[in-house]
Nucleic acid binder design. Sequence first.
DNA 1: TGCAATAAAGTTATAATATAACATTCTGCC
DNA 2: GGCAGAATGTTATATTATAACTTTATTGCA
Lengths: 167, 167
Amino acid sequence: MTNNLESASISVEFGQRHDHELCIEEALKQAKRVCEIEGERFTDLRRQVLELIWAEHKPIKAYDLLNELSAKRRGVAPATVYRTLDFLQAQGLVHKLESLNAFMGCSHPGQKHHGHFLICESCEQVRELESNAFKQSAGLIEQENAFKIRHMTVEIFGICESCIKKC
Amino acid sequence: MTNNLESASISVEFGQRHDHELCIEEALKQAKRVCEIEGERFTDLRRQVLELIWAEHKPIKAYDLLNELSAKRRGVAPATVYRTLDFLQAQGLVHKLESLNAFMGCSHPGQKHHGHFLICESCEQVRELESNAFKQSAGLIEQENAFKIRHMTVEIFGICESCIKKC
DNA sequence: TGCAATAAAGTTATAATATAACATTCTGCC
DNA sequence: GGCAGAATGTTATATTATAACTTTATTGCA
């Protein structure tokens, strides 16, 4: 077992055709790896939830997750979903999109980063930006305001390339 | 009545001592102005809500607002609060902090801008950044991703200067 | 193996946040 | 005054999230 947390990211461009089964497979594989490294259990429940979250490159709401999960197993309640989401977020496998009250699979699991997102208002797909996209601005802001940044919520709404072309 | 929307901003540094009554007064004055320019009514309810929002340099939750507002007038229900918040947000007088489900008075009313926030996790005060803090990064992101930005939620959590000094 | 300790998941209840739909009142205008 | 539209009141309910306690599964160890 490797101890290298810097793994490849699971990421595609907006509207790009790809074998999404591979995305899911890769996400699950990396999740398993992260859990092993962290000494956490990647249980059936956690795997199922993560798999549902990765079903599309769109954020999913907790109660939609609950509905879909209910089709797969018994005894699913809100707490089931929120607990599992908490776990997956703690492991850096899932991000919450605050503006949408919804959850996304993390494209850079195992890499320490803030989640920054491009959200297409037309196709509703979401893409995670590289963490360093705002690094310079963030540094500047820290200096100018004598403020020590601990976490940044960055959610950018607009129209993706693919949707611009379609107009 | 002036038609100049570019008004002074209502803004103080973290921890800075100031006559907060003046902040509130200024916020209400500018709100009245914005409403006049936009042909909207700055009613008692709207003024009371905005005044409560400006009571501190901290975000306030809708149901806390509801409680405080109930002390001032009869027949206050959730819809009362949310409707008024919607109005104030539409006029650019109030911002919602998505990460906190809470609301803040806008420091640059009448100026077209995204709200970007520094949120101190120690004293819980919030300060609105100048809109152009991220302008360069935003431009870069648009280019690199061929993405047309329409709105940005930027909420930066950390420790403010005043709280760093206290440690 | 068997038992204790801990972690995970199940279960029930409820809190916190937000909106929908319709009724009433207020305001500006003729 | 009376009409039209805006604002507010009112009631009900949807959506999002957590608390508290129970049961089950897993691990480590005697």
